[in-house]
Amino acid sequence: MNGSADSTGPALVVIDMINTYDHADAELLEPSARRVVPVLVDLIGRAREADVPVVYANDNFGLWRSHHGELVDAALSGPHADLIEPIKPDDNSLFVVKARHSIFYETPLSYLLWQLRVRHIVLCGQVTEQCVLYSALDAHIRHLDVTVPQDAVASIHPHLAEAALEMMDRNMGARIVAAKEVDFAPPARSGEADPGPPTR
């Protein structure tokens, strides 16, 4: 990959779904997460079939020695493994460990997306009114296009999630859609010859 500014298509970013659900407000989050997992299974599956990068951006559980394998193993050994197993990373998945709300804060994600020549990210996971919202804002100020499938994000407080989705739409220019509307097709090409990735 040459780091060109030309876009090659979207990346799917799965936020904080590798989770032990032993934190504050987990009892409020778990039912919402349970509703979105089947949607995520389909969304992640379609991204993989389309050869779209799937990036897991996940909290480190406060363990600074943690790496992604340790995080996945910890989540799978917990009481909510059924929420993790269907959506766990495969061998081709990319993984970014984060320590704060935004997927960009003090992580290599910006550089990773630049290497992948990605200018459009699809955000899914949890929590809508926290990490998804802050990540969408950080993506917006980096001039990235953002799509948020509203049925593929879980929340703790539904009324705040609704407000967060409206803020992402109105203030950050994010596309708020149903997961089935997310198109992982490569950028459209015009003419008979292949001119290469379109420029922005």
Rank of each mutant, 00 (worst) to 15 (best):
E129V: 02
S66C: 07
V153I: 06
S32I: 01
P195L: 04
I44F: 11
V36Q: 10
V127C: 12
V54C: 07
T8D: 04
E70D: 15
R142Q: 10
V96Y: 13
T128W: 03
G196T: 07
P149Y: 06
T20H: 00
P10E: 01
G9Y: 03
Y56E: 11
S155A: 05
G62F: 12
S7A: 14
A99T: 15
H101S: 11
A193D: 12
I15H: 05
V36P: 10
V127N: 06
V39I: 12
P187R: 07
V118Y: 05
E192S: 10
L112F: 04
A11T: 02
V182R: 06
A188G: 02
L113S: 14
R170D: 11
I176A: 03
P186M: 03
M17Q: 11
G45V: 12
A164I: 08
I18T: 06
V177Q: 03
G62L: 09
I156E: 05
Y111M: 12
R200M: 11
L28P: 00
D151L: 07
D22E: 13
L29C: 05
R170S: 10
H120T: 09
D16H: 05
P38Q: 04
V37C: 06
P10D: 09
I156R: 14
H140S: 14
V146W: 11
A11H: 01
L76W: 04
L137N: 07
D90N: 15
N2G: 12
D51I: 01
I141H: 11
P186G: 02
P53C: 10
D25W: 00
E166H: 01
H140I: 01
V36S: 03
